[in-house]
Design a protein around this nucleic acid. Structure first.
Lengths: 152, 152
DNA sequence: CTCCTAGTTGAAACTCAGATGCAACTAGTA
DNA sequence: TACTAGTTGCATCTGAGTTTCAACTAGGAG
């Protein structure tokens, strides 16, 4: 089955290789963890998952690889309003930027795409003559469930 | 000259006292530093400036006071795209939220207010039923000067 | 004005994410 | 198959921010 686009096991890998970067065993592992993540993971969680695939992998390699991906715009670094400590979270850079909403009560993270957001970025580029490379809109507050819940 | 609003030396102080919080010598000092800051300061810079006014002041007190102000929504905590390390920057919470643009080349921080931003927040509150307490839109990229400058 | 106490402070020690220096290793190429 | 620039792992470091606790004090009660 020589499909033209196998896509699933390695869009990030493909993109890194297309940039002429070396594909090591460790990088492959970390990339697959990031790629298949169901939620936002921090560096420690990524290390833990990578460790299950390849126990020899080191913390430092995870940090270095995440920096590499960030520099190449392949992953986005999130703070998620520092709801718990100062760690960073990572997600594959999406085709279309979205907003992250963090509930200050239950900690749930919700994502939201908006045309207004796209237009706002356009306005910044035009009016400020600022060339946007990365953007991050994070909002802290109370989600619909927590708003209607009885106060803790 | 009993002006009804002396305003200048202590709007933050007044707001804290209005909330029934204790006004200590140290807090007064830190508040005045934040209040008169010409640019975004991190905790260490705030400590340094506070130290010039009151050498006895401790790091810990600065951190605690900044947390207090943050909890009361009197200052906003910024990351400024982590241009240099993981520290946080602080600014008085403005009447109207603005966007922070960080130049990845020269490090300059520019602020920008936008009607679209206000509308976007309104949309989030309405469509997501999310009650916004704090919002932070940070953008990284290249400012107009650096775009036209010769590559380093 | 004096006393009282809950809230605040400072000093030291701690935590934790992330970075760095360097010798050993290896992917991709000649 | 050999070579080498780039990568890895380990040990160590850094630096922001937090915690613990005894001593102190702002601001209200008497």
């Amino acid at each position: 089955m020589p499909l033209p686009e196998t896509e699933i096991p390695g869009r990030l890998q493909a993109e890194l290789m297309a940039r002429g970067l070396r594909m090591t065993r460790q990088r492959r592992t970390i990339l697959s963890v990031v790629e298949t993540a169901k939620q936002h993971l921090d560096a420690t969680q990524i290390l833990r998952k990578a460790h299950k695939i390849d126990p020899g992998i080191d913390r430092v390699t995870v940090y270095r690889t995440l920096n590499l991906l960030k520099r190449h715009g392949l992953v986005d670094e999130l703070d998620l309003m520092h709801l718990e400590g100062e760690k960073h979270y990572y997600e594959r850079h999406p085709q279309r930027d979205h907003i992250h909403m963090a509930c200050l009560r239950c900690g749930k993270i919700t994502e939201f795409e908006s045309d207004l957001f796209d237009r706002l970025k356009g306005q910044i580029q035009r009016e400020c003559q600022f060339h946007i490379v990365v953007s991050r809109l994070e909002v802290g507050g109370y989600c619909s469930q927590c708003r209607s819940a009885t106060p803790a």
